[in-house]
């Protein structure tokens, strides 16, 4: 199953990068969303997918799934949520000020005057 997951992760990263490189701000934000999903699934996969029981103590169960990656993912999820919320607002504020969502029109401060 890890093989399939590796491919799914690859697809997520690929789509994320593709979106991030596009001109439209909205698509860039969609890209960052996919990026974090890819990263989280990667942690999960790296922990191994073969366990049979969730890591919650229960009578007579010994084959728990590795709980550590799950804890890490949970932390990462919350953090990416915070970042996503921030980005959404940043995005629409930028759009409001610049009146465009075309990144090509937001040439940076590298003017060589």
């Amino acid at each position: 199953m890890e093989f399939v997951m590796a491919i799914v992760i690859g697809i997520l990263f690929m789509a994320a990068v593709y979106l991030i490189l596009s001109k439209s701000l909205l698509r860039i934000i969609l890209g960052t969303g996919l990026l974090s999903h890819g990263a989280h699934l990667l942690i999960l996969t790296m922990g191994g997918l073969g366990g049979t029981s969730p890591p919650v103590l229960a009578e007579g169960v010994t084959d728990y799934v590795d709980p550590l990656p799950q804890a890490l993912i949970l932390t990462a999820i919350v953090i990416s949520f915070g970042v996503t919320a921030f980005i959404i607002v940043l995005f629409y504020r930028t759009y409001a000020e610049h009146k465009t969502d075309n990144m090509n029109l937001m040439k940076g401060n590298d003017e060589h005057d």
Binding site: E2, F3, M5, I9, F13, M14
Partner: peptide, 22 residues
């Protein structure tokens, strides 16, 4: 097309890394 090539490269890299590490 340029974006696609870069994106595919990154995606494939991730898949290869994941497989190898696992």
């Amino acid at each position: 097309l340029g974006n696609f090539i870069i994106a595919a490269a990154v995606g494939i890299t991730m898949t290869l890394l994941a497989l190898s590490a696992h």
